[in-house]
Design a protein around this nucleic acid. Structure first.
Lengths: 241, 241
DNA sequence: TGAGTTTTCGCCTTACAATCGAAAACGTGA
DNA sequence: TCACGTTTTCGATTGTAAGGCGAAAACTCA
């Protein structure tokens, strides 16, 4: 038996949260589980996870999906042996999808400390998803999947701080992402807050597909034409991990 | 049905090569396939791929194994629907494992151009493995899995050049890896070549387990104690991708 | 108009990769 | 034995990018 599981993450109330549903029946009744389900006969795993997610949230609100890892310990679940392919899904913070009654958002930091208790091996899966998100926020333009279409630098700073779990300098964020060509100024400005202050410039992400922005400078080809063997293929541009 | 597939890579004759076996029976008879096979009932996918690999090469020669990706297109193989979990395996260049008669090493650059022809979707799987190796060579100490226990900088340079597919500066390689604490001088020197020259210093890798050495400087915590939410767990040190 | 607030910009420091050149250590051949 | 070529290693320099700090800009409210 093969199942797919989705770790859907969103920054809500200044905190990184994960979508879980409360199991009503045994085994593990009362514990919280990741959305997902059985892989269908005529779909691949990515199609399957998007289909199953549609039962929990509006799929159009999921801005990015990628494969995480296979969990296959024989005893990871009671009953028939089940292999799980885990996915990471990201929802922009402006979306507020309607969720079924048994489903709710929970802060990731709490879940990783057992609050609330998770079913089966779903806790480690959430940890892996959070680690992947943190890493990719640093060397890709993945922020687009957490941010609204347009935003201010300080708004984006709060998103990054929540997702990364540490302070982020707005000055640096602006400069680093601008130099990499990730951020583009729209020209507009946002209304200042109630206590005044200079109006913030409005930005958007240049692209809304994931792209590696930090080409691991260490061992970069010294000259584009000095590569040996075959040339770089388009598929090589964004390694899945 | 679930199968595991291994992309076993090694630098041989100055070139990155992959271990393939020639299919003798239909379907796809005569084409070259990745080693692997059916997932057993009482093993997880990593155990399974190591077990199946033991039939092709001596497992003790595989210095590093990691999960790549799940391939699950319903029509990826004829017959019963089969989901494949692909793995990357690395063999040090000094090893020369005995392989069965139907099995042989092939240069990755040729395989990616259809020489020799590969079975099913194994071509794209090899491409994914090569891309993963190239990326991780740059920001981890993964070189230990391709190199002999002891080596000279110029020897290591050739390995990196073969795996990465572009020229690598020996001077920079030495300094970058030394500063990161990846390389350690043994104190010994290698015998000079037939045309003389200064004897090269002998180095080894400080660790033989994969470790991320470039902590994505961009959005690093400004101070270790300023992280919000939970602290970093040991499991967070080496994200699997 | 002045005080307070928030954002933005410029300068400085630090870290690291890449390049260049010199010095060190060896073999070969005159 | 001594000059020469070869190969490796080390030091100095340059360029790029990130992080930190503070000043200036732009707004609200009293």
């Amino acid at each position: 038996m093969h199942e797919v599981l989705a770790v859907v993450l969103q920054v809500r109330a200044g905190e990184l949260q994960v979508l879980l549903w409360r199991r009503g029946i045994e085994p593990e009744a009362g514990r919280w589980a990741l959305p997902g389900g059985r892989l269908g006969a005529s779909e691949d795993v990515q199609t399957s996870v998007l289909r199953q997610l549609a039962e929990k949230v509006d799929v159009r609100e999921v801005a990015h999906v990628e494969q995480l890892e296979v969990f296959s310990a024989p005893d990871r679940m009671p009953g028939a042996r089940t292999v799980a392919t885990a996915f990471l899904g990201l929802v922009p913070c402006v979306a507020d999808p309607e969720v079924p009654g048994d489903t709710a958002w929970h802060p990731v930091s709490g879940v990783l400390h057992g609050d609330p208790a998770t079913a089966f091996d779903h806790g480690p899966i959430v940890r892996g998803a959070r680690n992947r998100l943190r890493a990719k926020l640093s060397y890709t333009n993945l922020g687009f999947a957490l941010a609204p279409p347009e935003f201010t630098v300080s708004g984006l700073r709060e998103l990054y701080a929540a997702a990364l779990g540490h302070r982020v300098s707005a000055t640096n964020l602006q400069r680093v992402l601008a130099r990499r060509g990730v951020l583009v100024a729209t020209g507009g400005t946002a209304a200042p807050g109630p206590s005044g202050g200079r109006p913030a410039a409005v930005y958007r992400f240049a692209e809304r597909d994931m792209r590696v922005t930090d080409p691991f400078a260490v061992l970069r080809p010294p000259d584009p034409r000095q590569t040996v063997g075959e040339q770089l293929q388009p598929a090589d541009r964004a390694p899945s991990s």
